[in-house]
Design a protein around this nucleic acid. Structure first.
Lengths: 99, 99
DNA sequence: CCCATGGTTCGATGATGTGCGAACCTACGA
DNA sequence: TCGTAGGTTCGCACATCATCGAACCATGGG
């Protein structure tokens, strides 16, 4: 697998984003992404199996919340902040700021 | 049943709200509530059975998104705008404004 | 070339979620 | 008091989701 599929900005759906963020595990992944430019997928400190984690990352990716870049055997994740801010202004801020 | 249970403002959880809004039916219900002060539950123009509709309204209620007042045999629903704005500023605006 | 590493995919399983009809409850009106 | 109308709850079917281990794939190092 050379590339991973990401939805275009205009294809990001609100319900999909809400669903992606409605899981505590995924929400904490997203929060861990703020401030850091890129996060190695394997560096996540979450007590779940590789396959489960990969599934959550795919949900976030498919919803358009995150972008994953492949470099060698590593995947580097980042928030699609610009796309989300453009499409749903304020959404990300809400998700990140809430206690 | 004289009263319906609603979570206190401080008990409203972000993931629950996200989950409540991640369903297209529920999102459209919420959007139909904007502008109107109160909406009779039966006046919803949604092609679903009574029981299914009641279920969706309960999800919204339990998540703290809506408040339901009982008057006679009718239920009147309203958005908990103040509570949501206080707890998660901007969230409701995002859900309501997005195309 | 072989192996270890980082991740994805597959198949299965149990938990949730959505949907329905039927039965039920409660208030109102005749 | 009896029926009807507005909603809830129950029981069930079916779909989706979260989770895991095992198998798999690609890359980089020896």
């Amino acid at each position: 697998m050379r590339t991973l599929s990401h939805p275009a900005r205009s294809d990001i759906e609100l319900t999909a984003v809400f669903h992606a963020l409605s899981d505590p595990t995924r929400l904490s992944i997203v929060r861990g992404l703020v401030g850091v430019d890129e996060q190695s997928c394997g560096a996540l400190d979450i007590p779940l199996s590789k396959s489960t984690l990969s599934h959550h990352l795919k949900v976030l990716r498919d919803a358009g919340v995150t972008h994953t870049r492949i470099e060698g055997t590593h995947r580097y994740m980042s928030l699609r902040r610009e796309d989300l801010d453009a499409r749903f202004p304020g959404l990300l801020d809400v998700a990140l700021k809430a206690a």
